[in-house]
Computed example of a mutant assay.
Amino acid sequence: MENGNRIGSLSITPTVARQTPRNDFGTVFARTAQEVVKAGAGIAASMMPGAPMVSAAVASVSSVVSSTASSVGGASALPGAGGAGGVGGTAGGGEPWDLLAAQREMQAEGMKMNLAYMNLQNEMQAESRAHNAISNIMKVRHDSAKAAINNIR
C-alpha cells in the first residue's frame, strides 16, 4: 500500500555551470544606492518647502554615491578583498582610501541628518507639552465656570 505523504524516488541532476552573471556586492550596492538617491531626489524636492536646499543636499550625496560606484570597479578595489594591494590598498592609486573617505562623508552627512531629526522631535515634543498644558488649563476654567453657573441656579 502506497502512503500519500511519502516522497517517491529522488532524481539527482548533475551540476551545471553558472548561468547568471556574477555580480560583486559592492558594485550592486553602489548602483542601487545611486538609483535610490535619484528616485528620492524627485520625491523629496516636490514635498519639502526648502526644495533648492534639499536638491543641493541630494546632489551632493548623489555625487558621493556615483564616485563610490565608479571607484568600485571590481573586488580588488575593496579594502581587504584580497586583490593585488591587499589590506594596505592598491598599488595604483589608493582607490580604497577614496572609498573610505566617501563612506566617512556619507556617515558625517547621516549624523547631521540624525541631529536635525532629533532637534525636530524635541521641538515637536515641547509643542505637544505646551498644547496639553493649555488644554488642561482651559478645561479647568470651563469646569469652574460651569460649576459656578450651576450653583447660581
Rank of each mutant, 00 (worst) to 15 (best):
G8Q: 05
G89H: 00
F25M: 09
K146D: 12
G86V: 03
M113Q: 07
S71K: 08
L115C: 09
S67C: 07
E127I: 05
P21D: 10
A116I: 11
I134N: 11
I12P: 02
R129K: 11
S70F: 07
V87I: 08
V58H: 09
E123Q: 11
M111A: 15
S62Q: 07
R6G: 03
V28C: 01
A81V: 04
R22I: 15
Q103V: 12
L99A: 03
N132I: 15
M118Q: 15
M48W: 07
A45I: 12
A41R: 15
H131S: 13
I134M: 13
S11W: 06
M118W: 03
D98G: 09
Q121I: 12
A102I: 00
V16A: 08
V16M: 11
A51N: 02
N23E: 11
A81M: 04
S55C: 14
G110I: 09
G110M: 09
R141F: 09
K139A: 15
G94S: 04
Q125S: 14
Q34C: 08
N119H: 11
Q121V: 15
V65P: 01
N132W: 07
N3S: 10
N136Y: 09
N5P: 01
V37L: 13
P52K: 01
G82S: 02
S55G: 15
H131I: 11
V87K: 05
M53Y: 13
M113G: 08
V64R: 04
V64G: 02
G85S: 04
G82T: 01
S144C: 09
P79R: 07
A148P: 00
N3D: 11
S62A: 14
G93K: 02
A17L: 11
V28A: 08
E127F: 10
T15G: 02
T20S: 05
M113H: 03
T20A: 12
L115D: 13
T32M: 10
S128V: 08
A84Q: 06
G86Y: 03
R104Q: 09
E35P: 00
R6F: 06
T13K: 13
I43Y: 07
A51Q: 05
R129P: 01
G4P: 10
V140Q: 12
S62I: 00
D143A: 07
I137T: 13
I43W: 06
G73Q: 09
S70L: 11
G110K: 03
E2I: 15
T20P: 00
E127M: 14
N132G: 06
K139E: 15
Q107D: 09
R31G: 04
G8F: 02
N150D: 15
V61E: 00
N122Q: 10
L115H: 10
